[in-house]
Design a protein around this nucleic acid. Structure first.
Lengths: 334, 334
DNA sequence: GTGAAAGCGCTAACAA
DNA sequence: TTGTTAGCGCTTTCAC
């Protein structure tokens, strides 16, 4: 396995020049540059990340914290992050953060805190104050996706505005009894997403002059099956049935659509449904939804992080756009 | 940031003893062990992975190669891998391998080959002969999931047997016109999975004495929407419609169920559907399927890899179990 | 069981 | 622009 010395020898320069030529730090003559490049290629030389990391303090490795992987949103964000990071020559190291404190502590102390990563992207994980401090204390740039994290630059959509938009869409169509399928905060790995989405829903209702009817509010875990289950409860009683439902995720919204079908309801005549995400399945179900682009969120997070790593302008919180995608799952009430 | 020297000083021993005590390599007296552990904990000391890696040649970091992340199977495998790896004190570094040769080459040369990872798990990526050789040449253990990879220990289900089982289930119910929704090989990231699943389907038909009817065979990309689309074509013509469908993935099977419903067919009376996976959504749709447990596959792959890393018995190909999960999507034909 | 010391393969001052 | 050289913080012989 060729080392930097071999390359230096083959190129007829010193190892320092090889290092400079290959890393782009410091100036190197065109001739030397060329010679080094050629020699490195011929020998199949690649710097040892351990050696480089030890000497420079940079690992070119970014830690990504996610609560789960097997979930549309996280998988998309992760794809966005990893592809962008790879383009920039960085590795992506994955940490699944559970709710278990000791497990988390281990991740923080054993993995993140020392030399393993140059920086961290936290995707929808609610970091405790001391966890944030620990990261910042070792001078590791930290960017959050789905924040907000106190004192941390974060990329996020405006969950409240999204909900208000979705609910408002139903209101504008003439719906007066609008159900809400939210997330349940206990089991939830996400932040305040459940809370914010509910607040937006209530705000839109208030603006329309409607009262909040607790019997129209149910919660699930953002998945399709649970959305189906709670929607069935919500729709089961013909007397109290809402004419429209806003679900805090597309998966739950699709669950609601399936539940409505199984109850013999015609959509959208008997029931309008709006979701959030613009999930891969949304189009198939004709689901009206508020789009958020997790893949892009991941890419943007990387861009923010790189700026922080390079010590450029202090990146700050950035609110991402969202837009209503109207399809066939919503119409005026019968 | 405390270093090994600080710990040595605090514990009143040499840095060599600290290293031994913390890594478990070499013998240390109980007293020293205790003193070191205490000092390290007090100082919040964690070894520098760069320094340790440089000195020892071990990074405690495993590279995981996947074609995509945002897909049920891969996300599950990934969760299994990363959680198990974390338990063992290893990092998981993620590499998305595209079909683009130059991109792949970059991953291999710049990332994998040098000091960044101790070993590699390839999940359903078809590695070229030279890619496998490159890994083995630098003496990096390699384990495949979903193989087979020539000369590489691999964990895999028997795709052909799975298909034969699923198709046989329909045959045993009395179906004679059985459609097949397979994967399309061109766009496919997976191996020979599409081919094997088709072979199993054909074998089961042959065993039952049926001829293969090409008009009953369609292909999609393993996703629900495409499964829906091709199933609609398959089921559109009432004259040539099959009474049962075997889909090579649960997502496509569910797509077929939805397509059938949209065509006004009653399930399972008018159409039986079998899938493969036992996907999170299978139960909701009452889908009969052949289960494979990707999460476990990931965990087992880690176990195999660790054995290889430790130089224990040469791990070999391991075929995973599968089982038929019968639900309500299949019955005898009308 | 323990310590001294020689690297591991680079990067970054510094000097030229 | 280039080379020399001193570390980076560990692990691992080797001698005791």
């Amino acid at each position: 396995m060729a080392g930097i010395k071999d390359v230096a020898q083959a190129a007829g320069v010193s190892i320092a020049t090889v290092s400079r030529a290959l890393s782009g730090r410091g100036s190197v003559s065109a001739a030397a540059q060329e010679a080094v490049q050629r020699a490195a290629a011929e020998l199949g030389y690649v710097v040892s990340s351990s050696a480089s990391g030890l000497a420079s303090g940079r690992t070119r490795n970014i830690g990504v914290l996610v609560p789960v992987i097997n979930h549309w949103f996280y998988a998309c964000v992760l794809e966005g992050i990893s592809s962008r990071l790879m383009d920039e020559g960085y590795d992506t190291t994955l940490y699944q953060l559970t709710k278990d404190r000791t497990h988390r502590e281990k991740i923080f102390s054993d993995f993140l805190l020392r030399q393993r990563v140059d920086a961290v992207i936290a995707v929808n994980v609610e970091l405790a104050e001391d966890e944030v401090q620990a990261l910042l204390a070792v001078d590791k740039p930290l960017v959050g996706v789905g924040g907000p994290l106190p004192g941390v630059p974060t990329l996020h959509v405006n969950d409240e505005a999204i909900s208000a938009l979705a609910t408002g869409h139903l209101v504008s169509l003439g719906h007066e009894r609008i159900g809400f399928i939210g997330g349940n905060e206990e089991t939830d790995v996400d932040f305040l997403v459940p809370t914010h989405r509910r607040t937006g829903y209530e705000r839109a209702l208030a603006e329309a002059g409607f009262e909040v009817d607790e019997s129209l509010i149910v919660s699930a875990d953002f998945t399709l099956p649970q959305g189906y289950a709670v929607a069935k409860q919500l729709l089961g009683n013909p007397a109290s049935r809402p004419t429209g439902i806003f679900a805090a995720s597309d998966e739950m919204a699709i669950g609601a659509i399936l539940a409505a079908r199984d109850l013999g309801l015609q959509l959208p005549q008997d029931l309008s449904v709006v979701g959030v995400d613009n999930h891969d399945l949304a189009e198939l179900f004709g689901l009206t939804t508020v789009e958020q682009r997790p893949h892009e969120q991941g890419q943007l997070a990387v861009a923010m992080l790189l700026r922080a790593i390079r010590g450029e302008e202090p990146a700050q919180a950035h609110e991402l756009e969202h837009r209503l995608v109207v399809r066939s799952s919503t119409t005026r009430p019968a």
